[in-house]
């Protein structure tokens, strides 16, 4: 009788908990294993789309098209350890390099901002910007990911200065996001420092 109650009170809950944990962890693991490849593909596709966008290549939002364009037009230049240093972008079936894209990381308000920055062949002016990863405040700093903000960098030249929304006139200015001065200046730093980085990586290697 006493033994039975010990089993019921102490052991059964533990066994029950272990069983439940086991069952649910197995279920989630199975689902995870099945979707793992899709998730990895998504990540890769994101990077490809970002590089093409930063290079100013206009594409429909179709995975197949993006894969095709990336394979035809983009070359990854890697260092000895296999890390990608920069991307070369060409017209399809051409050997002339149109533009370069570098991936840069900067410190935002909340965490890292990862951005792809596209340059013209001469590394003098920007082709475009794509924000690959950011964790800024949604609705405020998070707006660095919005199209109007990213589009304005096309054709601009470093060093860039910020002006209020709607006021950018010269090729050295870009419009800041109201209420998000840190996220804006993080982007400003990324853009302005990336020219030197690109020169070092690309010209230094030739």
């Amino acid at each position: 009788m006493k033994k039975g109650s010990v089993v019921k009170k102490r052991i059964f809950p533990v066994v029950f908990m272990l069983l439940i944990t086991l069952v649910f962890i197995s279920i989630t693991t199975v689902i995870y294993t099945f979707t793992k490849d899709t998730i990895a593909l998504n990540e890769r596709l994101r990077l490809k789309r970002a590089v093409l966008y930063a290079a100013g290549v206009q594409l429909p939002d179709d995975p197949v098209e993006i894969e095709k364009a990336f394979d035809n037009r983009v070359t990854e230049v890697k260092d000895d350890t296999g890390k990608v240093r920069y991307f070369e972008v060409r017209e399809s079936d051409s050997t002339v390099i149109e533009s370069y894209v570098v991936v840069r990381i900067g410190a935002g308000l909340w965490g890292e901002i990862t951005a792809g920055v596209g340059f013209d062949r001469d590394l003098e002016s920007f082709r475009g910007l794509e924000v690959i990863d950011q964790v800024e405040t949604p609705g405020l700093g998070g707006r660095i990911g919005e199209t109007w903000f990213k589009e304005q960098f096309r054709g601009k030249r470093p060093p860039l200065a910020t002006v209020p929304e709607g006021d950018a006139t010269t090729e050295n200015q870009f419009e800041a996001i109201t209420g998000a001065s840190y996220s804006t200046s993080a982007i400003q730093d990324i853009m302005n420092s990336s020219q030197e980085y690109a020169r070092m990586e690309i010209l230094g290697s030739q």
Partner: peptide, 18 residues
């Protein structure tokens, strides 16, 4: 809590994938 967390993980994985 464990049951709820497991279902949330499933939602999270599915969102990440699709």
């Amino acid at each position: 809590t464990l049951i709820i967390a497991s279902y949330v993980i499933i939602v999270d994985i599915v969102l990440k994938a699709f």
